[in-house]
């Protein structure tokens, strides 16, 4: 046994040594903050009662453990914010991901054919991805400006009434979904295009020989062939969209009703205005993590099952 271990170490020490930095970095950058966040979520810590040691001023920590109080106040709905925000976060995630996949698939199918200037189209369609998200969001904000924006100029030019695109909660929700779809489509398109290109041509030829219509070919060859890619893309899309901070925070500015806030932007506003509420924000962070973890586990399971079937 020991000799086996020693043997393994002698044989693989190099591999262990190579892995060690990653393990250490992960522990420092991920595990420690995560553990600390979880610990804070069990306390009533805020900016005014944590330990501070600033020049001539010294204060010990005066916060204390409150058990699961923070979780209870969120999950019981007592804080009045969690469930409305969660509902909208789910609506937002589902609509964004559905549109991402649908539009990305459409564009990928269009690009996956022989045509002229294919490279140019592809480059143009990838552009939103190459622009930093916040730059794109600010550009949209300018375009959606109800007085000086280009959209209203266009629709008033053809005689339609000007719209206040970012005013009411409903309009804001439509606007943030629209912008996020614009930002997210390129990635989905590229990923699905890669998937399309990896489907063997023989399958299409065979089905054509059997007299399958284009629609039948799409449903019975393309979709199953894309499944490994779509599974991953949907999973990633859900996680990214669920936590998509920049679009909502930057597009709507500060004068909002808060109705269009998703869980992460809500937690941010809660934590980073005025005296920071560390425990409250940590609790939201852990709850968001738990939701995503539960979703991914469930989703992976189902995926494995369908693959085995």
């Amino acid at each position: 046994m020991i000799t086996a271990l020693r043997h393994s170490w002698q044989k693989y020490w190099y591999a262990w040594a190579m892995v060690a930095p990653v393990v250490i970095v992960l522990a420092v950058l991920v595990l420690y903050p995560l553990g600390y966040g979880f610990y804070l979520s069990l306390t009533n810590a805020n900016e005014a009662n944590v330990a501070r040691d600033i020049g001539a001023f010294h204060a010990p920590a005066t916060y204390k453990m409150v058990g699961l109080d923070n979780y209870w106040s969120i999950l019981s709905g007592a804080d009045g914010d969690f469930y409305p925000r969660l509902t909208w976060t789910i609506v937002w995630t589902v609509s964004c991901v559905a549109l991402h996949i649908a539009i990305g698939m459409g564009l990928a199918l269009l690009l996956n054919r022989k045509m002229r200037a294919k490279l140019l189209y592809r480059a143009l369609l990838i552009l939103p991805w190459a622009v930093p998200a916040f730059v794109g969001v600010f550009a949209w904000r300018l375009m959606l400006n109800s007085q000086y924006g280009v959209f209203n100029e266009m629709i008033t030019a053809v005689g339609l009434p000007a719209q206040n695109w970012l005013a009411t909660p409903f309009a804001q929700k439509v606007a943030v979904i629209m912008v996020n779809v614009w930002i997210g489509v390129p990635f989905n398109m590229v990923a699905l295009l890669g998937g399309l290109q990896s489907i063997p041509k023989e399958l299409y030829e065979a089905s054509e020989m059997d007299g399958a219509s284009p629609w039948q070919r799409f449903v019975n060859v393309t979709l199953p062939g894309l499944r490994p890619v779509t599974h991953t893309v949907v999973l990633l899309g859900c996680i990214w969209t669920f936590n998509m901070f920049a679009v909502i925070y930057l597009l709507l500015g500060q004068n909002t009703t808060g109705e269009a806030d998703i869980l992460v932007t809500f937690a941010f506003r809660k934590a980073f205005t005025g005296v920071s509420d560390y425990s409250g924000a940590a609790t939201y962070g852990i709850v968001i993590l738990a939701l995503l973890l539960a979703f991914s586990t469930f989703y992976r399971r189902r995926q494995l099952k369908t693959e085995q079937a």
Partner: peptide, 15 residues
Amino acid sequence: AKVDFANAYDNMQTS
């Protein structure tokens, strides 16, 4: 004037 909530300050100044 009609208020653009997302761009209120900038629009107010510009107009």
